[in-house]
């Protein structure tokens, strides 16, 4: 089952805003310290009442590189980089692919299976995120 919930358009376009941090969206809060996003902010999504963790792409790396969540919780992937990225998981038990993410794009993925998954960027192969999903 593909667990991709949806791609959230943000107000920042890909042109002329390289390096900018995404602005506050309508439904999702980006917590910042000194203007920069903090790592893996877990908070409640007011719209759905479910927990959402954040993972950022910055300097061609995932931040953080490891994260633990519960089944049916979500991770929002935020491209805070100056280059385009992708996020996918190619496992047989659980898989998803958000397609191309230009700077500023964010995608929300629900993890519906327990297990340890390797999430990667198909554009930059050394970008790896290990997601542990527990019951």
């Amino acid at each position: 089952m593909i667990a991709l919930v949806g791609s959230l358009p943000v107000s920042i376009s890909s042109t002329g805003n390289e390096g900018s941090s995404p602005e506050q969206g309508e439904r999702y809060l980006v917590t910042r310290e000194n203007g920069q996003p903090t790592e893996s902010v877990v908070f409640t999504n007011a719209a759905s009442g479910e927990g959402v963790s954040k993972v950022f792409q910055k300097d061609k790396k995932f931040e953080p590189t490891e994260i633990q969540i519960k089944v049916n919780e979500k991770i929002e992937f935020v491209n805070n980089d100056s280059v385009s990225h992708n996020v996918y998981c190619g496992g047989s038990k659980f898989s998803f692919n958000v397609g191309s993410q230009v700077p500023g794009d964010r995608d929300l993925v629900e993890f519906t299976k327990a297990g340890k998954f390797l999430v990667r960027c198909a554009v930059h192969l050394d970008m790896k995120l290990y997601v542990t999903v527990v019951e």
Binding site: K60, N86, N97, V123, L125
Partner: peptide, 28 residues
């Protein structure tokens, strides 16, 4: 940086998109 991109060449070759089965990465 060993990254993959569609840089706008005239080509029918799907490249990385063909290998991964990701349409969004055709011609990468």
């Amino acid at each position: 940086d060993s990254s993959f991109h569609d840089i706008g060449l005239k080509t029918d070759d799907k490249g990385r998109g063909g290998f991964l089965g990701f349409e969004s990465m055709n011609h990468f």
